[in-house]
């Protein structure tokens, strides 16, 4: 996978939906929670469902260099679209 391809598909490849749990509490290396690798498919799906549900209750703040072109929706405007969020 080239860097150009990676920019289109995400840093970890073609999988578009990623959940990283926990804080990156370490001064030296990027750290990844691995409990999730061993919990099985059912619990794994439940983690994704929990994240999707939590996203519906959070207001959106855009950060980074590309934030100027996009305004976050008002909470009242996006009830329908949030149903489609992962």
């Amino acid at each position: 996978m080239s860097e150009r391809d990676e920019e289109k598909t995400g840093p970890l490849g073609a999988e578009p939906v990623i959940v990283r749990l926990g804080h990156g509490a370490n001064c030296s290396s990027i750290g990844s929670v691995v409990d999730t690798l061993f919990v099985g498919a059912v619990l794994g799906s439940a983690i994704f469902a929990a994240v999707a549900a939590a996203m519906k209750n959070e207001t959106v703040t855009i950060v980074g260099k590309n934030k100027a072109k996009s305004d976050p929706p008002k909470p009242a405007d996006d009830a329908k679209t949030k149903e489609d969020a992962p």
Partner: peptide, 23 residues
């Protein structure tokens, strides 16, 4: 609240999912 307990989370969303959030 996840099945593994209370956790912070960072999520990667594809473009369709971002649009579904109204963004």
């Amino acid at each position: 609240d996840t099945p593994l307990g209370k956790r912070a989370a960072i999520v990667g969303l594809d473009r369709a999912s971002v649009r579904a959030l109204g963004l």
